[in-house]
Nucleic acid binder design. Structure first.
Lengths: 186, 186
DNA sequence: GGCAAGGTGTAGCGATTGCTACAAGAGCCG
DNA sequence: CGGCTCTTGTAGCAATCGCTACACCTTGCC
């Protein structure tokens, strides 16, 4: 019943950044307990002690990553409000293609795949991250935009399609599609 | 040096449909040799005999699935040529959301995730399937369309973004995005 | 018939998986 | 001090992984 009797040298919160770094670098497919533990400087035994099971660990970790995503976005996408929808799209795409965002982009498609397979925590994490991005888009829509809410959703759809095509090596197709959309200056 | 000395009761080509059915139902993550063999009515031993290694098996199987995708699309999407771009989008989305296409849609995101991680055969399969879809789109663009090639790429991007959002439970967002695009009748 | 070669089953190997049993250290409260 | 709970390490288990060694059977050719 009593709470903290001993100072733990290692808590969930201190583990999350290291675990997330490993998963971002190696992918969820490589996220077995022993490699994860090694990356976090602990043992599989302790990971299970803290999280109860691997499934719970992944759930928590996806939540952490989704939360981290929000602050990362804010920090990376600061700047004055764009004037056109095309500038909004260009800013997002430039960020998504940056080296800093690359590990996250790889992980993103694994999360989508898990969500598509019905894994609930994957779906929750994916939804949370899309909510963040959608919120950012809504806040960045040009002040003169006739339909900021619908426009943000339209741009989100287009952006995610672009990123998917880029992920499979169809970036040219995506680029030509964006040109044809009239959003980007030719 | 000589070729077929004995009639094999089981060839690669006779295995592909059963293997593909298993992967479509269970996902690539569950595609271990023994379950695959069981689904195909053979043994892990024989799968390795035919394909050499699991990696080669998956490579071949992804190729088969990509090839199958083409004929499936043709069969499912027959019909008279649409008059508007919106009708093209609506037809694809209706098909993608059908029960028949659901297993494939789940598998699709696993393939994308593999491609994003740099797996070459995943990327090849994903590119092949997008080529097929793009080709179909180009052939279905309205005859009066001012820019069929660019328009097809634009629609492809929008469609894939919509499917991704739907896969993670953001179908409402995608639908509102499509409405705001002006392609669909409200 | 004999022989070589392709095809197939059985058994198993070493590695890795998630997880657990057991014991021991560390700090608090009485 | 004595005990109590929290924390941690060591070992190990049953299952599964991809893959292989070995033996056997069939089949076609000479």
């Amino acid at each position: 019943m009593a709470n903290p009797i001993k100072k733990p040298t290692m808590t969930k919160d201190s583990l999350f950044p290291l675990l997330a770094a490993y998963v971002l670098a190696e992918g969820l497919g490589q996220a077995s307990l022993r490699p994860l533990a090694k990356a976090a400087g602990t043992s599989d035994r302790m990971l299970l002690y803290h999280f109860g099971s691997k499934e719970a660990l992944i759930d928590d970790l996806l939540g952490f990553i989704a939360r981290t995503y929000a602050s990362t976005l804010d920090a990376a996408l600061a700047g004055e409000r764009p004037v056109t929808r095309g500038q909004v799209v260009a800013r997002i795409l430039k960020h998504a293609r940056s080296d800093a965002a690359q590990p996250f982009t790889s992980l993103w498609w694994e999360i989508v795949a898990g969500a598509a397979r019905g894994e609930e925590s994957y779906r929750a994490a994916a939804q949370a991250m899309m909510d963040v991005l959608l919120g950012w888009l809504e806040g960045q829509m040009p002040t003169a935009d006739p339909d900021p809410e619908g426009g943000a959703r339209y741009l989100l759809t287009l952006i995610e399609g672009t990123l998917m095509l880029a992920a499979i090596g169809h970036e040219d197709t995506a680029h030509e599609g964006l040109l044809a959309s009239g959003l980007l200056p030719s």
